[in-house]
């Protein structure tokens, strides 16, 4: 067992930890994390065993034709959703097999992917607000109710982004956003804008629904990653509770 060889395995392990934690914290299911990390390790000539939990990743890397192995654990950053990164890493994993990328090239690609820009803030705010208005339409809202939901969602998401910037607890940030959005929508109920302003109130908070945690939760449960599925499901449940909390406050204030 020589020192230099171990260093080489360690380097590969660091990269695999990067890949795994990035995927896990950006909206990939547990099965996808395992498959992608395995695929990359295999292409580089390593065997890897993983222990994936919601907030940490542990792996043991063994050389395919050697006796050198190394293990380490890394804490996974708080979960968000960034599908551009998930998609980029997935494409990269295939390029590693097809183009035989070296470790340095892979690390370069990872840092390029993590620095890819998000959509401009105004675009995100407007299109999510449009999604809110679409929900209102799907639930049977009309005319002014759509406008109210648009404004409420826009304002709510703005508050959420600001709260996250100020490093509030993520659940609290959602409660703030839900409160802000339902204050706007509640005002329209008070003033009687539109025929059925209740539609606006019920759909103004839907842009916050924990879609990714809930779908990934079920995906994990089906795949047999029961523990992670339960953790994600509870996370989704707390988010739903935070939404309800903000909404309740606003309804109490308006006396609805």
């Amino acid at each position: 067992m020589n020192r230099q060889n171990i260093e080489k395995v360690k380097e590969a392990e660091e990269m695999l930890l990067d890949v795994g934690t990035l995927l896990m914290s950006n909206g990939a299911s547990t099965g996808r994390v395992r498959i992608t990390v395995n695929r990359i390790a295999e292409a580089l000539g390593y065997d890897v065993e993983l222990l994936i939990t919601s907030r940490s990743l542990m792996l043991t890397v063994t050389e395919e034709n050697g006796s050198d192995y190394t293990s380490s654990v890394r804490r996974t950053p708080p979960h968000g959703v960034n599908f551009r990164l998930v998609s980029g890493i997935s494409r990269m994993s295939w390029r590693i097999i097809e183009d035989k990328l070296s470790l340095d090239q892979i690390n370069e690609e990872i840092s390029r992917l993590t620095s890819l820009p998000h959509y401009p803030r105004l675009v995100v705010l407007s299109l999510v607000a449009l999604a809110g208005a679409s929900f209102c339409r799907l639930f049977g809202g009309e005319g002014w109710e759509l406008v109210v939901t648009f404004v409420a969602s826009f304002f709510g998401l703005f508050i959420r982004q600001e709260a996250i910037k100020k490093r509030f607890n993520p659940y609290l940030a959602i409660a703030f956003a839900s409160f802000a959005a339902s204050m706007v929508a509640g005002l329209s109920v008070k003033l009687g804008i539109g025929d059925t302003p209740e539609h606006a109130l019920a759909t103004s908070v839907l842009f916050l629904i924990p879609g990714v945690p809930l779908i990934n939760s079920l995906t994990d449960l089906i795949d047999g990653n029961t523990l992670n599925g339960i953790v994600r499901g509870i996370n989704g449940f707390i988010i739903a509770f935070a939404i309800a909390l903000g909404l309740m406050f606003a309804m109490q204030i308006y006396g609805l």
């Binding site: 959703v81 960034n82 599908f83 299109l127 999510v128 449009l130 679409s134 339409r137 842009f207």
Partner: peptide, 16 residues
Amino acid sequence: WFGFAALGFGILFNVP
């Protein structure tokens, strides 16, 4: 409207 609702979430999730 289904399309637009999905589009908004796509943008929120930063899809390519």
